[in-house]
């Protein structure tokens, strides 16, 4: 049996029920593997993520937080991308104040068929966080 990778970074993903969740599901269906220490909480829309939830994740020991954003596909309107971006910017400023590297909070638009993009993001983010730990 292979290693569970307990020394690997833990990433919390905020995904969205209608857009990025189907892509993450399809990544599984297609057996596109990514590190298992990626944990997912689904929301209706990525611009509903409260900064306090992100801060809570870091205070509880998560190494990184990733927002799998609706982007322009958001069923709730075109303003989603800008609004999610503003939340990220605001939260990154808060992280900076707390001495946490802002780049540990990432966001990318993951559309309902963007399975490969999601997997790539998870692999890259994990690699980045591993390098952060070792440096």
């Amino acid at each position: 049996m292979s290693s569970s990778g307990k020394d690997m970074p833990k990433i919390l993903v905020f995904s969205t029920e209608k857009i990025s969740d189907p892509a993450i599901d399809m990544a599984g269906l297609l057996k596109l593997h990514y590190p298992p220490r990626v944990y997912i909480i689904s929301l209706p829309c990525s611009s509903a993520v409260k900064p306090r939830w992100i801060l809570k994740a870091f205070s509880e020991g998560f190494d990184g937080v990733f927002i799998a954003a609706d982007g322009t596909d958001c069923p709730y309107g075109e303003s989603c991308t800008d609004k999610t971006g503003a939340i990220i910017k605001q939260t990154q400023d808060m992280l900076k104040e707390k001495g946490i590297e802002p780049a540990k909070l990432r966001m990318a638009a993951i559309c309902s068929i963007c399975s490969e993009a999601f997997v790539k993001q998870m692999k890259n983010f994990t690699e980045y966080l591993v390098n952060q730990k070792t440096n």
């Binding site: 990778g5 599984g28 057996k31 298992p36």
Partner: peptide, 15 residues
């Protein structure tokens, strides 16, 4: 299933 067993079929312990 989609987010665990299939996504991590390469890593049973991790899954």
């Amino acid at each position: 299933r989609e987010q665990v067993s299939w996504a991590h079929s390469d890593n049973k312990l991790g899954a």
